[in-house]
């Protein structure tokens, strides 16, 4: 943490960046996002296990962009989000400085290539617990899964906290906000909730960087991240493609291979 704070002080003092987007202590033992603009306030920055939020989400916020060039205290998921956003032309090279924090170390990553290398060196599979979680649902039969999700979605409020928390949901006008026709129902009834969650999962397919913020943000504890994770696995298994590893290139659903599998197609 000290390394992070002194790095932050240095970056602000030398005006290399105008703002450090990082974590500070919040309420209820949580961490919260903080936007440090003065070197003197760098001591507010913390980094520990409570720092989970994917701060890359703030790149879609105009008030944050207006603060100037930012350094972002980046979790591994945030680094992947930055690369995916770069691949989707939402961030340009040089617009931000990523500060990868690990233990007591701070690794400044100024270019996308540096971020790519950093991510690649630490890349790995899901943890045993994460795999188990997904497998638990697959082990349920079709009917049990159906009942599970029906119950889950019956509690959805359509507050769109999942969408707001996701760094890859940056559309200035979301599909649900278009009427003529109102394609996804606005009211939070069971069918509308199912359709919204399906839409969200599909629009993130091939793009989600698996930060889990959607599930964390949900005020009624729906394990939304499972939908995204299931599709991450599908995209990787079938197309061999993973988001958030390169600052260039099309994502899985905006490209194709002539020999993509089609054993289910008659």
């Amino acid at each position: 943490m000290q390394a992070l704070r002194s790095k932050a002080r240095e970056l602000l003092a030398t005006k290399t960046v105008q703002v450090i987007i990082g974590y500070a202590s919040g309420g209820g033992g949580r961490a919260r996002a903080v936007f440090v603009r003065e070197a003197a306030k760098a001591d507010a920055l913390v980094f520990d296990d409570s720092c989970q939020q994917n701060l890359a989400v703030y790149f879609s916020k105009p008030e944050v962009r207006k603060l100037g060039k930012a350094a972002l205290v980046a979790t591994p998921a945030a680094l992947r989000a930055i690369l995916q956003l770069a691949a989707e032309n939402q961030i340009a090279e040089g617009e931000l400085l990523a500060l990868a924090v690990g233990g007591d170390d701070v690794v400044p990553l100024a270019t996308f290539a540096a971020i790519e290398a950093h991510v690649a060196a630490r890349d790995g599979d899901w943890s045993a617990a994460e795999k188990e979680e997904l497998q638990k649902y697959e082990a349920m039969g079709l009917e049990e899964r159906r009942r599970f999700w029906e119950e889950q979605f019956s509690r959805c409020l359509k507050c769109y906290a999942c969408r707001a928390a996701c760094p890859l949901c940056y559309c200035t006008r979301c599909t649900v906000e278009c009427n003529q026709p109102q394609w996804i129902p606005v009211p939070a009834h069971d069918l509308g909730n199912l359709e919204w969650n399906v839409m969200r999962a599909m629009h993130l397919a091939g793009r989600c960087v698996d930060c889990g913020d959607c599930g964390r943000a949900c005020p009624v504890n729906i394990p939304l991240h499972l939908l995204n994770r299931r599709l991450i696995r599908e995209v990787f298994t079938v197309f061999g493609s993973r988001s958030g590893r390169s600052a260039k290139g099309d994502n899985a659903l905006s490209t194709f291979k002539p020999n993509d599998p089609e054993d289910f197609i008659q």
Binding site: F148, V198, V238, F256, D260, Q266
Partner: peptide, 27 residues
């Protein structure tokens, strides 16, 4: 080609949500 990829992903999602993919025939 684009549709094909989308179908693969959507089938995975439907199955995960407990919707019987045998009700949708792609061809």
């Amino acid at each position: 080609f684009h549709a094909r990829r989308r179908w693969v992903v959507f089938r995975g999602l439907m199955d995960f949500l407990g919707i019987d993919v045998r009700r949708v025939q792609f061809s």
